[in-house]
């Protein structure tokens, strides 16, 4: 098995078929990269959103317990 082209230039030219071959391979690389990368980014975003949601719920719960506690304290004072 050996490299089929004399020079790098002839490899890129592909006897005049270069534009077709490289356009095809370029498009494939682009599409495959998009396919692999989009779920990673979407998952990262989802995790961030879910974490934020969890934090908000936690804060709300904490606020509710302090409210209840201060209410109880007020009752004791009375």
């Amino acid at each position: 098995m050996q490299f089929q082209f004399d020079s790098l230039a002839s490899f890129f030219a592909m006897d005049g078929h270069g534009p077709y071959v490289w356009a095809s391979y370029g498009m494939v690389v682009l599409v495959l990269v998009v396919l692999a990368v989009t779920p990673v980014f979407r998952q990262r975003k989802l995790r961030r959103e879910l974490q934020q949601q969890l934090r908000q719920e936690e804060a709300r719960r904490r606020a509710a317990t302090t409210r209840a506690a201060s209410q109880r304290a007020a009752e004791v004072v009375e």
């Binding site: 089929q4 490899f11 592909m14 006897d15 078929h17 071959v21 095809s24």
Partner: peptide, 24 residues
Amino acid sequence: VVWGLGFAPEDFKQGNSYRIIYIH
């Protein structure tokens, strides 16, 4: 990709455009 683009022989009828077969 390296094999198909650089090392597989040229097609006697279609020339180098046939190398698209390796992704098509």
